[in-house]
Amino acid sequence: MALVYIEDSDPWLMEYDACLKLFREIMEQLTARNRHPRKSQTYANLSVNIRIHLKQYKREVQELKNKVDDASKSKTITIEEAERRMRQIELLLSKEVQLQKLYDSQINELANSRANLLTSRGSAFADGGTTSWAGDDDDDDDKKPIDVQVSVENHVNRHNEILQEQDKGLEELCKVIARQKEIGVTINNEVGHQNEILDNLANHMDRTDNSLATKIRQVQNISIKECTCGYWVVIVFLFICIITVALV
């Protein structure tokens, strides 16, 4: 027997609502972070919180998916309910991709601004032999190219990490689209099957109507015959009565 929950007390639905709430919180944090300078402590704190909440969101979505798979295997929910919940999970996954893109886009903007800053600094120190103050800061000029090189390497590494994260997000999106396609094909097949059932039912109803009309005509004929027979009985009885009276 399938386990049935009241909609308001279904643990899975409560966890799904919690995921939606977490999504809204992350969106609010992203919006709040954009209102602060990128070099401020508040911006850094919000970035850390957003990264933690993104991991939490991804973990909770995966837990929801695992619970649907387990419930489907144990047949504690119907196939239609399992498909409906999978569509809800795919919606959560698409929201995850959206959040990750927003987070990565802001990181890319910050990385590009840093790269532009490093490029401008490199051009400023390129003509150290022609400026009047370059000769006084020879030691600093020897150290800054090394710092710039390290910063560029860090930027390249971070850029590669961001690209890898974006690739993972695209893979998840492809999986979501493939799953939606499978659901669409399943729904189309189910609709075709239901149409066949309706056609058979309509044909059966037509045959039933024809049979009922035939039976009604037969009943009417029998009723007419019964009425005629009664009339003949009365006529014969009256005729006998007339003959009896005449003989008397």
Rank of each mutant, 00 (worst) to 15 (best):
Ser113Asp: 15
Leu64Met: 02
Asp147Gln: 15
Thr130Asn: 14
Ala134Thr: 09
Phe125Tyr: 15
Tyr43Trp: 06
Ala82Gly: 08
Val148Ser: 15
Glu60Pro: 00
Tyr57Asn: 00
Arg87Gln: 13
Arg84Tyr: 12
Ala71Cys: 05
Arg84Phe: 11
Ile89Glu: 02
Glu63Arg: 10
Pro145Thr: 05
Thr131Glu: 14
Ser151Trp: 06
Gln98Trp: 09
Lys65Asn: 06
Gln106Trp: 05
Lys144Ser: 13
Asn112Pro: 00
Thr78Lys: 03
Glu80Ser: 13
Asp69His: 10
Ser47Leu: 01
Gln98Asn: 10
Ser132Gln: 12
Lys101Glu: 09
Val148Thr: 14
Asp104Pro: 01
Asn154Gln: 13
Val61Arg: 02
Arg87Pro: 01
Leu102Val: 02
Asp147Cys: 06
Asp104Thr: 05
Ala44Phe: 04
Val48His: 03
Ser47Arg: 01
Asn66Ile: 01
Arg84Lys: 11
Gly135His: 13
Arg38Ser: 08
Asp138Ile: 14
Ser94Arg: 12
Arg85Gln: 04
Ser113Thr: 08
Gly129Arg: 15
Leu93Asp: 14
Asn108Ala: 10
Asn154Thr: 07
Leu46Ser: 01
Lys67Ser: 08
Val150His: 12
Thr130Phe: 15
Ala111Trp: 10
Ala124Asn: 06
Val48Gln: 06
His53Ile: 00
Gln88Cys: 08
Lys65Glu: 11
Asp138Trp: 15
Glu83Ile: 08
Ala124Lys: 02
Asn49Leu: 02
Val61Cys: 02
Lys143Met: 12
Arg35Gly: 15
Val61Asn: 01
Lys65Pro: 00
Pro145Glu: 07
Asp69Ile: 03
Asp139Ala: 15
Ala115Arg: 11
Val150Thr: 13
Gly129Ile: 12
Pro145Asp: 07
Ile50Pro: 00
Asn108Trp: 09
